[in-house]
Design a protein around this nucleic acid. Structure first.
Length: 670
RNA sequence: GCUGUUGUAGCUCAGUCGGUAGAGCAUCGCAUUCGUAAUGCGAGGGUCGGAGGUUCGAAUCCUCUCAACAGCACCA
């Protein structure tokens, strides 16, 4: 079971506990022994240990002096163990129920775990009940997880023999130095690095299979598609229930659902991935546009507009034709037949135009007009460019992933020594903007050179280094995403999470030493010679579509006053107040407020309910009394009596005061 | 694009064993003029995603196809 090493067996091991206390043990010593020494209660509750920050089995020998913390069920680390073990239990259940199914990998993930199986017939959700039942049986057996170390070649041979080709492949690809460990639970065993709980019983009962999905072996679409079962697992039923409830809540904030309910936009089959913006949705768009245009002016940008359709020769020069064509919409430059039943084109098209997938090459054309001096740099050229990208069907997702998008795009043409300043400047703009919109949880990624790319390795070295230096000088945490860069340069990506925790790239900054050279854009340097500028591609929102989608989810449709498509509805109690209400709305509109009038012959209760469900931030109620006194009764969304602020459900203000107040409160953040 | 699931009224959803489609909300009409989250009564509204097939008969069974959803791959 254990292959205890015979090295220095006589030397005692010193264990430092989290509170700083040290204990000395004669070898061999396990985590369990440490726990026992501390107390029998802890020994009973112990699931694993954290040795110098690394989780290991309770029964593994601790061979060297180290800091050891005992992990119990209360520990957040327990979750990872429970999930990983649940994956093993699920794999056993599946193999017991569906002989011939091969196991591959089954890691724990955020909120749960999954396991990828290879099987002719993919599983369906109808199999879930059976699998869950079998899992509960295995958990009830409470079989200990035991670790074995196998000989590498024997392990490969063995897994091949029993028909587990994927496992054999995993082992052959492990580095020679890696110990091949196998964990056993009763009769079943799996190649696994560990660690595990003491026994299957510790998995508990707070788990649930969630969904099946296809997943490529080793994440490559060239490989076979496996069938993946996703599940969630928690320490107890309460946690599981809370998680499931959270998912239900998240569903209610889904921007696709809210978009329909709030009449913001719609999508339809004939224009897959392109958005029909309704009046109310486009109002938010216009506020966003106004905001970012003001910011661009403040940060020294100029704004341009470039063509939508350009000849393929243009895209050949830019490199898009060879590196990006599969994502482009290509249009034959031929007049089509109009005769009924005739071929669409009289002749085979020879010339092609393409809808722009990016704005950069167009901006370079503007840069190239006339001669630029080093004194002109940096030039920050912005465009609300509408781009088309032929995204795979399966990739489309509401507003988050569309085929027609409008970017708040800009290209900064600068000298190499200006990269750092410009990056800093951009991040300032980004920080201010995201703060104003209320996005706090933004993560940074640096995406490096992809396999399919333009430019030399030396150029890439330079670009990647420039970006990393800039970010590091800002002292912001980031993660590396190797191979995820654009074909012309590395990217700095800013990711925001949607309602159910999916992360989407919004803002981006890309360093590009390639395109200006390809398209022969130059400036005259101090030395009187031609030089290629560096080009920084950057967007703050990313795309209006995605950013607006994120906003809807972040606010659950309850937009702050400055963004709300309808800022206030003036609702009457009886017809007696109709004239006054009309006057109020007219004054509000004159003041630039997005106000609506509700003089329908309905009860005030009905109106309040309807406009509250529509998430209108303010309802101005006017009855006979208000009309006579020239006041309004303001009811704010979600407004309830609040002892702290003394803000009641409503506030009665003189009309002038009320209008001044809403003007102030609905001003966009400066 | 790949794997799986789903598709019935504007929206949310029923529809049993194959016998020819139903509810709530919304809409429209009439009545009601009401003080902070649903006034009452009545009416209209569907090629059951599309095409083909099996059958005396298909929303229901079969084949193909389209789209949406979840995940994978790909990417703002």
């Amino acid at each position: 079971m254990k292959t205890a090493a015979k090295d220095d067996a006589a030397k005692p091991v010193t264990i430092t506990l989290p509170d700083g206390k040290t204990l000395s043990f004669a070898r061999p010593v396990t985590g369990l022994a440490v726990a026992e020494k501390i107390g029998p209660g802890l020994a009973k509750a112990a699931l694993a240990v954290k040795m110098d920050g690394e989780l290991i089995d309770l029964m593994r020998e601790i061979k060297k002096d180290s800091t050891v913390a005992i992990v119990t069920r209360k520990d957040p680390d327990a979750l990872e163990l429970i999930r990983h073990d649940a994956a093993h239990v699920m794999a056993e259940a599946v193999q017991e129920l569906f002989p011939g199914t091969q196991v591959t990998i089954g890691p724990s993930i955020e909120n749960g775990f999954y396991y990828d199986f290879a099987r002719e017939q993919p599983f369906t959700t109808e199999d879930f009940e059976k699998i869950e039942k079998k899992m509960r049986e295995i958990i009830a057996r409470n079989e200990p997880f035991t670790r074995e170390v196998w000989n590498r070649n024997e392990a490969i041979r063995h897994f091949k023999e029993i028909g587990e080709d994927y496992k054999a492949e995993i082992i052959s690809d492990l580095p020679e130095t890696e110990e091949i460990s196998v964990y056993r639970q009763g009769k079943w065993y799996d190649l696994c690095r560990g660690p595990h709980l003491p026994s299957t019983g510790h998995v508990g009962s707070a788990f649930k299979l969630m969904k099946v999905a296809g997943a490529y072996w080793r994440g490559s679409s060239d490989n076979a598609m496996l069938t993946r079962i996703y599940a969630t697992a928690w320490r107890d039923q309460k946690e599981l229930d809370a998680y499931l409830r959270m998912l239900e809540e998240a569903e209610k904030r889904d921007h696709r659902k809210l978009g329909r309910e709030m009449d913001l936009f719609h999508l339809q089959e004939e224009a897959q991935g392109s958005v029909f913006w309704h009046d109310k949705g486009f109002r938010i768009w216009k506020v966003m546009e106004k905001y970012i245009r003001a910011a661009q002016e403040k940060f020294g940008y100029i704004e341009v507009k470039t063509p939508q359709l350009m000849h393929s020769k243009f895209w050949e020069a830019s490199g898009h034709w060879s590196k990006y064509r599969e994502n482009m919409f290509v249009v034959p430059d031929v007049v089509p037949n109009t005769e009924e039943g005739a071929k669409l084109f009289k002749e085979e098209p020879k010339e092609f135009l393409a809808l722009k997938p990016m704005n950069c090459p167009g901006h370079i054309q503007i840069f190239k007009q006339g001669i630029k001096s080093y004194r002109d740099l940096p030039i920050r050229m912005a465009e609300f460019g509408c781009c088309h990208r032929n995204e795979a069907h399966g990739a489309l997702h509401g507003l988050m992933r569309v085929r027609q998008m409008t970017q708040d795009d800009a290209h900064i043409f600068c000298r190499e020594d200006q990269i750092l300043d410009e990056t800093t400047r951009f991040i300032d703009m980004f920080v201010q903007t995201y703060k104003d919109y209320g996005f706090e949880d933004v993560s940074l990624k640096i995406a490096t050179r992809p396999a399919l790319r333009a430019g030399t390795d030396a150029t890439w070295d330079k670009a990647e280094k420039a970006l990393i230096n800039a970010v590091e000088s800002l002292q912001r945490a980031y993660t590396l995403a190797p191979g995820d860069g654009a074909f012309y340069g590395p990217k700095l990506e800013f990711h925001v999470r949607d309602a159910i925790g999916r992360s989407w790239q919004c803002a981006t900054l890309q360093v590009d030493f390639v395109l200006p050279e390809r398209l022969d854009a130059t400036y005259i340097g101090e030395d009187g010679q031609k030089h290629f500028p560096v080009m920084l591609h950057r967007a703050v929102y990313g795309s209006f579509e995605r950013f607006l989608g994120m906003l809807i989810e972040a606010y659950a449709g309850k937009f702050p006053l400055w963004l709300a498509p309808v800022q206030t509805v003036v609702a009457t109690i009886t017809n007696d107040a109709d004239d006054y209400a009309q006057e109020v709305v007219s004054d509000l509109k004159k003041a630039g407020i997005r106000a609506e009038l509700d003089i329908r012959n309905e009860k005030i209760n009905y109106k309040i309910r309807e406009h509250s469900l529509a998430k209108t931030p303010e309802i101005w109620v006017v009855g006979k009394r208000e009309a006579e006194e020239r006041t309004v009764a303001i009811r704010r969304l979600g407004g309830v009596s609040d002892a702290n602020t003394n803000v009641d459900k409503q506030e009665i203000l003189a009309l002038d005061a009320a209008i001044n107040k809403i003007i102030t409160e609905s001003a966009p953040p400066a």
